[in-house]
């Protein structure tokens, strides 16, 4: 039961912050989407110790371990634009694939070169 109440409190906090983020985003017509603003707000509230880690931990774990699933409907939406892609498939396909690898290489190399010496690696 403790887990269940933790889940609803956590999800409620995440949705409330996304809502505030959407308000800020549309209110000030910012180019940044509401959920990214919500992420920044949550980070701030965690640092200010207004939101406690254990309030949101269960909900965050649930969402982050299933994040790939939530993208599936967006991907299926690509089928509506097949004709648009087919009309100029070569520049679109080569440009998209090549640039994805170029960005990973450039960003990865720059970050790796500047990595602090004593910094430990992740888990």
């Amino acid at each position: 039961m403790k887990d269940l109440s933790g889940l609803s409190l956590g999800l409620g906090i995440l949705l409330a912050l996304q809502f505030v983020g959407e308000l800020v985003s549309t209110g000030f017509s910012l180019p940044v989407p509401g959920n990214v603003i919500g992420m920044a707000l949550l980070l701030l509230l965690l640092h200010l110790n207004v939101v406690k880690v254990y309030w949101i931990e269960a909900a965050v774990e649930l969402l982050l371990s299933h994040m790939a699933l939530f993208f599936v409907p967006a991907g299926v939406g690509v089928m509506v634009y097949f004709d648009l892609i087919r009309s100029e498939w070569l520049p679109i396909a080569v440009g998209t694939v090549a640039s994805t690898f170029v960005v990973m290489a450039v960003t990865g190399w720059v970050a790796e070169k500047l990595e602090p010496e004593e910094a430990g690696h992740g888990d």
Partner: peptide, 22 residues
């Protein structure tokens, strides 16, 4: 139905703040 699954993406992006904080 897909949009209900997609809906969960919003709070997931907000949730990314926790591993960043930790």
């Amino acid at each position: 139905g897909g949009r209900y699954v997609l809906f969960m993406l919003g709070p997931s992006v907000v949730a990314l703040a926790l591993p960043l904080y930790k």
